[in-house]
């Protein structure tokens, strides 16, 4: 079980690292577009993806530091627990900041009996239900804006963006449910990765077709 959880965490780190790289790519193209057009909202979009990338990489770094490097087993010391809470809060704060920037730029767009499970949930993240609910509400606005944009422009690129943000939303919904199920946590990470892949496909196709 312990090994199984360690594998899940490594997969989690891989998914988030890939997501972070794609977020940086979107930020790069949004900055390029801003430099070319001077459209301020593109700058906000770029900042949003940069902040999202920062959140993902800080999460990867924090998870690696606490659970992979130290291989924490059993009870956590109060100091370490406090540090994890701070890192987790920063992660949530950055994500919420990123989603608020998406809203602005696209506007118009514990309970477990198993200690291993406790470790998994306490570690990569300490899911904060209240912050997750806030995140979901903000993401709902982003998805709604993306949907309205797609309804108007009807381009496949807008559909990729709608898919990407919808996957992020599903990811956060599953993250809340993950308090009950470890497998759901990984599913949440998979949805997040799918969202980033939708953005990657959009970037690729926009330059090819």
């Amino acid at each position: 079980m312990q090994e199984h959880i360690a594998t899940l965490i490594r997969l989690d780190l891989l998914f988030e690292s890939i997501g972070g790289i794609i977020a940086l790519m979107v930020a790069y193209y949004a900055t390029k577009a801003f430099n070319l057009t001077g459209q301020k909202r593109l700058s906000d979009l770029s900042t949003g993806f940069l902040v999202l990338a920062a959140a993902l990489f800080s999460h990867v770094g924090g998870t690696w530091y606490f659970f992979v490097r130290f291989g924490i087993e059993g009870e956590l010391s109060p100091e370490l627990m406090r540090l994890i809470v701070v890192v987790t809060a920063a992660y949530h704060f950055l994500r919420i900041m990123a989603y608020i920037l998406f809203v602005v730029s696209t506007r118009h767009s514990v309970r477990t009996k198993q200690p291993e499970m406790l470790m998994l949930l306490a570690l990569p993240v300490l899911i904060d239900i209240n912050l997750e609910i806030l995140t979901i509400i903000i993401l709902l606005v982003v998805v709604l804006q993306a949907f309205m944009n797609y309804a108007v422009v009807r381009s496949r690129y807008a559909l990729y963006v709608l898919t990407g943000f919808s996957m992020f939303l599903l990811s956060h919904v599953f993250l809340i449910l993950a308090a009950d199920n470890v497998g759901t946590y990984l599913l949440s990470q998979a949805f997040q990765l799918l969202g980033f892949l939708a953005f990657l496909v959009m970037l690729y196709k926009a330059g090819r077709e």
């Binding site: 193209y29 577009a33 459209q39 909202r41 979009l45 506007r107 944009n149 807008a158």
Partner: peptide
Amino acid sequence: VERISEAFGIEV
């Protein structure tokens, strides 16, 4: 740039 901006609902 135009396609990417349009995909996010941003006019350039």
